[in-house]
Design a protein around this nucleic acid. Structure first.
Lengths: 209, 209
DNA sequence: CATTTTTTACCTGATATCAGGTAAAAAAAA
DNA sequence: TTTTTTTTACCTGATATCAGGTAAAAAATG
């Protein structure tokens, strides 16, 4: 069986590079190449496509939203995201929006090949470097981030649920003033301007919950 | 080569069940079973372990934190998370904290086997049901959540960066009062009490960025 | 056992948020 | 082109947050 494959990337050079790599693969047939997500969306309306390799950084529609849109209509389409550099949260977002895998553009031919075949078989795949990116904030990044004390985490959690200082005090049987002190300590600890920034920071760094 | 394997679960029945499944697998040798994370942490201090199968819902230390702690010291250890039911954010959190895979306990014997072998080979693996959970907020959940307008998203993004109403107004060349109106509209749209709850909601539902 | 960290608590004042209302351009969708 | 949504803007008052300072138990760590 042949997998009808489409490449989306706003750099023509990259398109031809990937096309070259894929041309050697059995069962993979490149049926079309696009430089924008809009053009892709139009194409899949009336053409059968099995596999999409897409750049994440695209003009107008970004890769994550593009993937989400496509998957809502065509859940069975296999979509692999690509980018040159990458950060953890972006990869996770792509997968949460239906992506079947994520590959860095500097991945070796074998990695590309492996990822594509495994994705077609239903796996969720990552190239080697992506795997390390996903699970490595542990070593460098996270070590210099101070952690919340138990009480601080309790309070931060209630803050993320929209509770006011008074409500938190009531919930935890504390004085209003105590909760106020904790709030300030947490903000100072991470050098945050207000709770909004704090909650965003804590969630992105998995310090909450 | 034999993979020294440890099972952690607070239900003895589950431990024996998994042990039974794994006993048939080649190369997998169960060297120890634990009912708590603390006991596991002590054990790995002075015993070689290659693979850990752990329940996510554990008393005292939860599976996510346990995984994180272990991976900081022993990055090469392969850790697979398990649970009976699961939700998307939990799985993602586990992987972001170094987990090599996530399997639902109702997975078939073949799924378990596949996942374990692939994880040992360096893949990040999910059982079938987990895969659908990861990428399915698209169908039901997300459809009834209203989306932000462009301006609202701009403002929400700046809010998540800790900016005040005045700062946002300056950034976007708008009146203070206009930004105030947008803020209120966003809060009303999602029925949120304040920006803290709003930011948490938007981030969890990938509506920001 | 001594030291450090955490948790508790109070006071004050400036500034910001939130909730209520209204309304008119501008842009997008039907 | 009409209708709807979005974006812009103003007013007021009650309440909440944030930043500054201080300090003493309690718990955890070395």
């Amino acid at each position: 069986m042949n997998y009808k494959t489409v490449i989306v990337d706003d750099h023509p050079i990259v398109i031809s590079g990937i096309a070259g790599l894929l041309s050697d693969l059995e069962n993979i047939v490149i049926v079309e190449k696009f430089e924008s997500g809009v053009a892709l969306l139009e194409y899949i309306e009336d053409h059968k496509v099995d596999l999409i390799l897409m750049d994440i950084f695209l003009p107008v529609i970004n890769g994550v939203d593009l993937c989400k849109t496509i998957k809502q209509k065509y859940p069975k389409m296999v979509i692999i995201g690509m980018s040159s550099q990458s950060e953890r949260s972006l990869v996770m977002q792509f997968i949460q929006n239906g992506g079947n895998g994520y590959v860095l553009k500097n991945a070796s031919f074998d990695e590309f090949k492996d990822c594509i075949y495994k994705a077609i078989e239903g796996e969720i795949v990552f190239s080697e470097e992506v795997k390390t990116i996903i699970s490595q904030p542990l070593s460098e990044e996270l070590e210099r981030i101070p952690s919340l004390s138990r009480r601080e985490r309790d309070i931060a959690l209630l803050l993320s649920q929209g509770k006011s200082t008074q409500e938190i005090a009531d919930d935890l049987f504390l004085s209003f003033l105590t909760v106020q002190t904790h709030r300030r300590n947490i903000l100072q600890k991470y050098k945050m301007k207000n709770v909004a920034e704090l909650i965003a920071f804590l969630l992105k760094n998995n310090l909450l919950n």
